[in-house]
């Protein structure tokens, strides 16, 4: 995927100084239930890499939902790509969403589409022609180690294969933000390391990455900054301007 590197890094100097995600006193609730996220204040710098940790129910998935715009804040100002998401009309969201790749804990693959079509889905939605993206998709599937399973249907894939397929779908549009919700939750340790290396590589190509994870060992070994959610609040603040990822993240070698 050498071609991706150049595209990820073609940002103007101005864009690089504006945080890609900015939370200002953001709270969120579902319907009339109590707030699941309270008074969050943080920014994510372009090209940064963060782990998001916290116990089950701490609000990790809800925080990611806010960033991929599947939910809106109930209070506060949320800016993504320098757009005020709380007040952006619904019909403007799809184009912003296309710049965000999401890897879901439960994969959310379409079972009636084969691996190739699942990965190609965001490109079809963006109106691209199959002749134009065919080789990119195949190359990407080979990169995640699924080159031999192009026409396999998701129900026939193993947990690790599904996980890598959903990563491939999340990155096929070369997104500016990559969110992953427990991407190593369903795989063994060796596969978890492999997936983490994949996400670090994408970050090196320029994507801002946030990974929600339970896996304390993996988080510690990566040496990446951590945002910790506890009871709907960030207890460990991320650096406001995060450093680019360390050239060789420690502890990721097998």
């Amino acid at each position: 995927m050498s071609s991706q590197g150049t595209e990820f890094t073609t940002q103007t100097a101005l864009e690089a100084t504006i945080p890609v995600v900015s939370f200002e006193s953001v709270s969120m609730r579902y319907g009339q239930s109590p707030e699941v996220l309270r008074d969050l204040n943080f920014t994510l710098a372009t090209g940064s890499f963060h782990f998001l940790t916290g116990a089950s129910g701490a609000g990790k998935s809800s925080l990611l939902k806010l960033i991929y715009m599947a939910a809106r804040p109930s209070r506060g100002a949320l800016r993504i790509f320098d757009r005020d998401i709380s007040h952006t009309p619904r019909e403007h969201l799809p184009l912003l969403r296309r710049r965000i790749g999401v890897v879901f804990q439960e994969f959310r693959l379409l079972d009636h589409l084969n691996a190739f079509d699942n990965v190609a889905l965001p490109l079809r939605i963006a109106g691209r022609k199959v002749e134009d993206y065919q080789s990119d998709v195949v190359e990407l599937l080979e990169w995640v180690g699924l080159g031999h399973r192009l026409w396999a249907m998701p129900p026939t894939l193993s947990g690790g294969e599904k996980q890598r397929l959903s990563i491939a779908r999340a990155v096929v549009t070369k997104p500016d933000i990559l969110l992953a919700d427990e991407p190593t939750g369903n795989v063994d340790h060796a596969m978890a390391l492999r997936i983490l290396r994949l996400l670090v590589e994408l970050n090196r190509m320029g994507a801002t990455v946030v990974i929600a994870s339970h896996d304390q060992d993996l988080v510690a070994r990566s040496g990446m900054p951590v945002m910790h959610l506890e009871d709907g609040q960030l207890s460990t603040l991320a650096p406001t301007v995060s450093q680019p990822p360390t050239p060789e993240p420690v502890g990721l070698d097998e």
Binding site: E91, L95, L121
Partner: peptide
């Protein structure tokens, strides 16, 4: 609904 949600998250507009 599952499919529609995935489509939206992949950037599909309502008319699509």
């Amino acid at each position: 609904r599952d499919i529609v949600e995935v489509l939206h998250l992949c950037g599909a507009e309502d008319p699509f």
